[in-house]
Design a protein around this nucleic acid. Sequence first.
DNA 1: TCTGGGGTCCTAGGACCC
DNA 2: TCTGGGGTCCTAGGACCC
Length: 433
Amino acid sequence: MFALVDGNNFYVSCERVFRPALRDRPVVVLSNNDGCAIARSNEAKALGIAMGAPLFQIRHFEETHGLVALSANFTLYGDMSDRMMSLVAGLGPQQEVYSIDESFVGLAGVRGDLTRRGRAIRERIERWIGIPCGVGIGQTKTLAKLANHVAKTAERKPGSYPAELAQVCNLAALPREAFEEVLARTEVGEVWGVGRRIAKQLHDGGVHTVLDLARLDPATVRRRWSVVLERTVRELQGLPCIDLEDAPAPKKEIACTRSFGQAVTDLEPLEQAVSEFASRAAEKLRRQGSLAGQVLVFAHTSPFRPPPHMHKSVVVPLRRPTADTRLLVDAALSGIRRVYEPGYRLAKAGVMLLDLSDAQAHQAELDLDADEARDRSRLMQAMDKINGRYGKGTLHVGSTGATVRAGREWEMRQERRTPQYTTRWDDVPIARA
DNA sequence: TCTGGGGTCCTAGGACCC
DNA sequence: TCTGGGGTCCTAGGACCC
């Protein structure tokens, strides 16, 4: 048995903890560069604001409906998430933190009324952290996900499901008939693992509700679609196929990518950005104790703007696996010089570290290089510490003086234009602590 | 003018080998 | 005209997730 607990409209809820006056009004939190809405309050959803809606398309709601749009504060959300997850852990013996606002809990061996336990945890999180949650319980992760969807939808749209399923929904406790009624009321695209494309194919094949999907023959689903969808069908039928992952596996690739606030056309600012991305990615790489064997660099124009379009990437192999910022920056720069062509208005670029391996295992293999490896990792550790204490980009490394200077200049420009968008909402006072 | 960032898994097809 | 059969590895691309 599994539970899925997730924070409602998480980023918006975090903001509301510190600014209670944001309650009961439409609020969105914006992505990087204040480009689009990545979290919406229920009131914003009710206005028809879609996930990912660009700010310029929804701005008129500020005037007409009192919409408040806020730049994201990811440090705050990460902190709130940690606190919420430690309370969620009290629900059962195993926990998988699935994303910043979601956690699965393995309930094997937990006795007593699971629904009541779910309510108790939910209330504790609301009271102690201030974040409203939905709790879903089911025999498989897919069913727990579905239950969570029911819990939230029943609360947000009264009448969509039986009222007693709001906030906490335990599908495993429902009689067969009521369970199937819930599945029949739910559109197939809501299922975890069924995205837009597959939902369309299912609809075309006459499969409209979750109940329709759950009644398909798994072998047929595998033949016509894939093993992935087959697994989903079996999970809907109550057969667990997806395990809880309580120890997070090390990342197999690490990326740092950004959209540019304004289109980039020249090589130099592109190099500045890419050297910064490579440095950030290298920090993440060292944090997880890995080495990278390859560096991928890409740049592309905006798919939303008129042609000419360009979308290119290059993989640069490294002579040997490394976590050294200098080598990774050099590789990324050599890559971006091969990608770059004048005449394009670039909207985004990024660096990905690939072919990752364990640093310790690798060093054991090559004890010839032990001294060098130690020196190198000491330098990098010192760098991470300084940048951690005094702010990103305080200390840069590069293959040439030009790289160092360029990286710093780019960083400063970013700081200067760090988005601080906030709807003017003078009538909404900030809560005093 | 303005449209996020970071991941995973699966599959098909080509290259290469015996 | 006829032109094997498998296995493995790699890559690109599709689809999905939050």
